[in-house]
Design a protein around this nucleic acid. Structure first.
Lengths: 247, 247
DNA sequence: ACATATCCGGAACAATTCGTCCACATCGAC
DNA sequence: GTCGATGTGGACGAATTGTTCCGGATATGT
């Protein structure tokens, strides 16, 4: 991080490249937004040309930022993880009971709507190590909420952190999310939270499912489309696209 | 409807056509099965040629039964509705409490796995009147379970039939449904059912959502891809392609 | 067993979509 | 204001996918 040329002086240093142009970055954002709205409207396979048009940029511009459709989806996904971590920042106050933290997290997740609905679901969850790390961090932080809830008695013991993670994944799926969807989703949330807290018949069926199990399932699913054993290291276009959704 | 030639005699009647050949019908089933497995493996946009190959039929055969991809998806969806109604038949014994009926229905739904996961979600829910009718019937029957649950006290009053319908839609979404998925889903179900039954803080947030609201949301979403105000009556390809998935 | 309506297969053709390339425009540092 | 690096746009060839068509194979009723 120390090598990053501060805007003021080091641009001449060891021949490092300038900071990316402002308009270029703006265009990248525009493309991401257009991608969400176009895919929501016409399905995940809208021609990239349509997205470019909707973003008001040329097709060449789109291709420079995102070499192919996967790169675009990946950027979308990564940005979504940034949003989730942002929510977690806001929600994670150590004094609130675990159950309330969970509820609040899920409520804000629902409120984000389209921003999450599309990126996180319905297509191969891409596996760059950046993305995997981001996902793991989110999961870990949610896990902490649950543990806190177990400790303070607001969440019954049988409930696993994974159960919450899975619910959050379900509730952000691209179902008929017309104007009425947030209402419907909030009702689901209320029922779910009630199920977490209730002191009903104690146990949950089947063995517990761990965070690692879920990660594995994701990885498997992502790897399957290409029959060969793809190495799935980090993708080459790591630095250009979303430089700062993590702030 | 009365004009359908009974298998036994009327074949010679007014020059009506013979009964469709057995092998043809078999091939149609094969194609549907192959479509599910191929789409599950490679995503919803596998080339139709791949599906045909996997079904062991020629591409021409596929096209004769299903004039385009939508027709194929439609047939899949319709078959899924058939399965759901079949489950409802088995579950609907008038003596069991409403909550148990709901639980059983959802449990079997989960057990169906791939058969539902793919057809029902992730792409425009097609609107032929046949499909709409089937969906409405399922919804109505579930509604009856809920009302029974309200009456016998097994389901708290704030819960709407729609809430259950929405959950059933969520739980059959194509999430990472690797080998571990049924376990995860069953846990979600347990939490949900607990939330239905619990006597926690009474109300649910927001106004109630009716079955009609959901149907509307579906219709809107399906209509949206084409910007113009499509009338969305029944689609023209109703009769030729899937003559008997309703067996 | 025969006749024939029905169905099959896949090669050939058409329509989309992808992805590249390069002449021109624009930004930012000086 | 000037200059060079960086970014832009869209026409074009390549590749993929969709769709048709028809000679030949097969089931079905008699």
């Amino acid at each position: 991080m120390s090598g990053r040329p501060a805007a003021g002086d080091a641009a001449t240093a060891a021949g490092r490249r300038r900071r990316p142009r402002r308009d270029a970055e703006l265009n990248r954002e525009r493309v991401l937004d257009a991608a969400i709205s176009a895919m929501l409207r016409e399905g995940r396979h809208v021609p990239l040309a349509v997205i470019a048009a909707e973003a008001g940029v040329g097709i060449g511009t789109l291709y420079r930022s995102y070499p192919d459709r996967d790169a675009l989806l990946h950027a979308l996904e990564y940005r979504a993880y940034g949003l989730l971590n942002q929510i977690l920042d806001e929600v994670d106050r150590p004094d609130v009971p675990g159950l309330d933290a969970v509820r609040e997290f899920l409520a804000r997740t629902i409120a984000l709507g389209d921003q999450l609905i599309l990126p996180l679901h319905g297509a191969p969850p891409l596996v760059s190590d950046r993305a995997v790390r981001a996902r793991q961090e989110i999961n870990r932080r949610l896990e902490r909420f649950i543990e806190r809830g177990h400790a303070d008695g607001s969440i019954r013991a049988a409930v696993n952190a994974t159960d919450v993670i899975v619910f959050s994944a379900l509730i952000t799926q691209p179902l008929p999310h017309g104007p009425g969807w947030p209402i419907v989703a909030r009702r689901q949330l209320a029922i779910f939270v009630n199920g977490l807290a209730g002191s009903g018949p104690a146990g949950l069926p089947g063995p517990a499912v761990t965070r690692e199990d879920i990660e594995t399932a994701f990885a498997l699913r992502a790897a399957s489309p290409s029959p060969g054993p793809v190495p799935l290291g980090d993708d080459p276009q790591a630095s250009p696209s979303p430089p700062g959704p993590d702030r």
